[in-house]
Deep mutational scan, measured.
Amino acid sequence: MRVFPVYAPKLIVKHARIFLTGVIWVKDLGRLEFEKGRFLLPRKSLPKVKQAILELNELIEAQN
């Protein structure tokens, strides 16, 4: 598990694309899981977490 002390979308996306499957922890967002290079949306999450995951997945799609 990698810990990101700040929310840096480009760096987080780079990590997810390299490792494809895993878990990261982002300060103020908490634990985020990714599989096959995409972030998974938890069943229950705060609106800011949901927005961050959608933003990260959009960045991943834009890079493909």
Rank of each mutant, 00 (worst) to 15 (best):
R2Y: 15
R2E: 15
V3Q: 14
V3A: 05
V3M: 02
V3D: 13
P5T: 06
P5H: 15
V6E: 12
V6Q: 05
Y7M: 03
Y7Q: 01
Y7A: 00
A8L: 11
A8S: 09
A8G: 03
A8H: 11
P9C: 03
P9Q: 03
P9M: 03
K10W: 11
K10L: 13
L11T: 06
L11W: 10
L11N: 05
L11E: 10
I12Q: 01
I12P: 01
I12A: 01
V13K: 01
V13F: 03
K14E: 13
K14A: 14
R17M: 11
R17I: 13
R17Y: 08
F19A: 14
F19V: 14
T21C: 14
T21Y: 05
T21G: 09
T21D: 09
V23M: 08
V23T: 12
V23C: 13
V23Q: 14
I24Y: 02
W25H: 06
W25R: 10
W25N: 04
V26T: 02
V26R: 00
V26P: 01
K27G: 13
K27E: 15
K27C: 15
D28P: 13
D28H: 14
D28L: 13
L29E: 01
L29A: 00
L29V: 12
G30I: 02
R31S: 03
L32F: 14
L32G: 02
L32R: 00
F34E: 00
E35D: 12
K36N: 12
K36A: 11
G37E: 05
R38M: 12
R38Y: 07
R38W: 10
R38P: 03
R38V: 11
F39C: 03
F39M: 04
L40R: 12
L40M: 11
L41S: 07
R43L: 09
S45H: 13
S45I: 11
S45Q: 09
L46F: 12
L46P: 15
K48I: 10
K48P: 05
K50F: 10
K50P: 03
K50M: 07
K50G: 05
Q51Y: 10
Q51K: 12
Q51F: 13
A52D: 00
L54Q: 06
E55M: 05
L56V: 03
L56K: 11
N57E: 03
E58T: 11
E58R: 07
L59G: 04
L59V: 08
L59C: 06
L59P: 01
I60A: 07
I60V: 08
I60D: 02
E61L: 09
E61D: 11
A62G: 09
Q63N: 09
Q63S: 11
Q63G: 10
N64Q: 09
N64W: 03
N64E: 11
